[in-house]
Simulated scan of single mutants.
Amino acid sequence: MAKYETLIFILEGSLLNEKVAELNALSQTLKLAGREFGQAQRIQYNSVQEKIKLLGFDERIKLTLQEFFKNDWISAKGTFDNQLQKQDQLNKDVLPFLDEVKNKVNLILLTKEKKDVASSRMQSTELLNYFSAVYFKDDLTSKLPDKKVLTTILHQQNLSPATCLVIGTNLVDEIQGAENANLDSLWLAPKKVKMPISPHPTLHLNKLSDLLFYLELS
């Protein structure tokens, strides 16, 4: 088994429950606009997500808002972003896993959101206690899947590419970004979802706790 000395987590999805966060943020944005978010809107939302699930983070949010707000989506995005800042629900196995690996592997956090948004979402969690370095969107000159995002982190943290594992849930942004930087990756996704041909993650697991099998922890 590969010995991974550094785990690079993408905050949105692998740690924070992004599906719940985005749904809640949209629901609140509609309600603040005086509009209903009932069963019909939920069905509409699920239909849209099925069509855009392979898109990157920014494009997915844009198209979701365009579906519900049409030409007024840009102003709606400001409200959506404010509501997203309030979404701090962690995936259920995150803290037990981090407790298990803390001080045994190097943990680095990468977020796709600006510092004010991501920091707000983490404020009531214990996440920042676990990571030796945190990179926000503001800290980088490019965004995933550009390989410069991850190669910059490797260079600044003096990491060996051979012992790093990128952990994410989005194929287009995160897994492709790892592949572009020639890094191993873990795609967290339901087992029923087929492993893609490209980009091709090194590992495909549906629970973060399953990664313990691939780590050589003393």
Rank of each mutant, 00 (worst) to 15 (best):
L23F: 06
P199I: 09
D173F: 09
A33M: 04
N129H: 13
L55D: 04
I197T: 14
S209Q: 15
P196G: 10
A178P: 04
L54G: 05
Y214Q: 11
Q157D: 08
R35Y: 09
I197E: 15
P201Y: 05
H204L: 03
L109S: 05
E216T: 09
S209M: 12
A133G: 02
T151G: 01
R42D: 01
F80Q: 11
T163C: 06
L165F: 10
Y45D: 03
L217Q: 13
V48G: 01
A181C: 11
R35D: 09
N206S: 15
K31R: 15
K92Q: 13
I10Y: 06
T202E: 03
A33N: 14
A181F: 07
L159R: 07
L7P: 01
T6S: 13
L154F: 04
H204N: 12
K115A: 13
G13K: 09
Q41H: 11
W187E: 05
L186S: 08
I108L: 13
K70S: 06
T6H: 07
T125M: 05
K92Y: 10
I153M: 14
L32W: 06
Q176G: 01
A21W: 03
K147I: 04
K191P: 00
M122N: 06
V101F: 04
G177S: 12
V101P: 03
L16D: 02
Q176W: 02
E100Y: 11
I8N: 00
